[in-house]
Design a binder for these strands. Structure first.
Lengths: 193, 193
DNA sequence: TCCGAAAATGTTAGCTACTAACATTATGGC
DNA sequence: GCCATAATGTTAGTAGCTAACATTTTCGGA
């Protein structure tokens, strides 16, 4: 019965199905009752699975909302900025350039996630912490290009904070595209343009 | 025996003594074994008190390290900036002005706390979240002065991130004063000076 | 000096996030 | 259909944190 002409694409594996079920159940419940009021056990049950399984897919409750696959593109773009600019401007303009070159992602799910994060105080902090890898990568790139470590640290933290703030603002404005929101956020801090 | 000429200053109340014991025990243990490896029960026991009592003094474990009494001075200084400048510069320069006017605080304890926070990944996020009140206040001030809310949000987040990054850098450099570190951090982002 | 209200602390019990060790079931290639 | 292995379940436990109630300590006034 698993003949070749059955379906066009491969049926998703069990792992993929469970993952999708957990994400969907989590977003639903977070939106309905709020992040803190929602229990991992509830999410698991709604996805037809046990609490233990949830933690096999996400190391922590908040990980259901946070992941960012953009790091490599960002740091490449920052490295491409002219070294005559100060580190802060290189970081800001590198991120801007990277985002211009990216296609608009499937925003609906992303917007749901960012909106929940933006509205949950505990998660705003978690969001910033989750940018830790990106921050380290940016610092490394800036230092490689000759910046002092402390200066690079300040520049990276500051630019990333602006980016996150722009994301939060975008999540609440249905009319804006992600690219527009990022541009606006970077305009705010890139005052010497 | 409780005659008036006993001691020069009032003996600290029991509440003050317990608080001091908890803070000292917490810093000691965090420095020795790290933040995550230290248990609230351990801190309480070292301070001669119960776990429950700890939570009567601090709403959460991380609160032993985080508190910032500087908000009012900051927002007043931001409000005093010329409105002809864009919001981002008003925020950055307001903070700079405020810090110039402040006396150097008793740095030893502060430095210990910041250093622990800077070295514990989980606490870097918590530090940023703990700036939430300050951020709201700055946004409010900027909006009052005519900035759009989204612009104000980006400016506040970005400037505060720079400030925190400067604090973290300062905690690791014994030779620097707090004021110098703040100045340096703000120099990084205030590129149009 | 004694006393009583209020502050400070203790006790117990419980919830939720998260981890570890081990047992069980389902999947999918051969 | 068989079997290695992936996926999931079970059980038990730790740590942060909360709530309800009991007990002790402090401290100002009669």
């Amino acid at each position: 019965m698993t003949s070749s002409a059955d379906g066009p694409a491969q049926r998703p594996s069990k792992r993929e199905r469970t993952l999708a079920a957990l994400v969907e159940a989590g977003l639903e419940l977070f939106e309905q009752q709020g992040y803190e009021a929602t229990t991992v056990a509830q999410i698991a049950r709604a996805a037809g699975v046990t609490e233990m399984t949830f933690f096999r897919y996400f190391a922590a409750k908040e990980h259901l909302l946070l992941d960012d696959p953009y790091d490599p593109v960002l740091i490449a773009a920052i490295g491409a900025q002219p070294r005559s600019d100060p580190p802060f401007l290189r970081a800001a303009r590198g991120i801007r350039a990277a985002w211009r070159a990216l296609p608009e992602p499937e925003t609906p799910v992303i917007r749901r996630r960012v909106r929940i994060a933006a509205r949950t105080p505990a998660l705003r902090g978690a969001t910033w912490r989750s940018t830790g890898n990106t921050e380290r990568a940016i610092v490394e790139q800036l230092v490689t290009d000759g910046a002092e470590p402390e200066v690079a640290g300040v520049a990276a933290a500051s630019v990333l904070a602006a980016l996150v703030a722009g994301l939060f603002a975008w999540a609440e404005h249905e009319t804006q595209t992600l690219a527009e929101a990022i541009e606006r956020a970077l305009d705010v801090i890139d005052v010497a343009s």
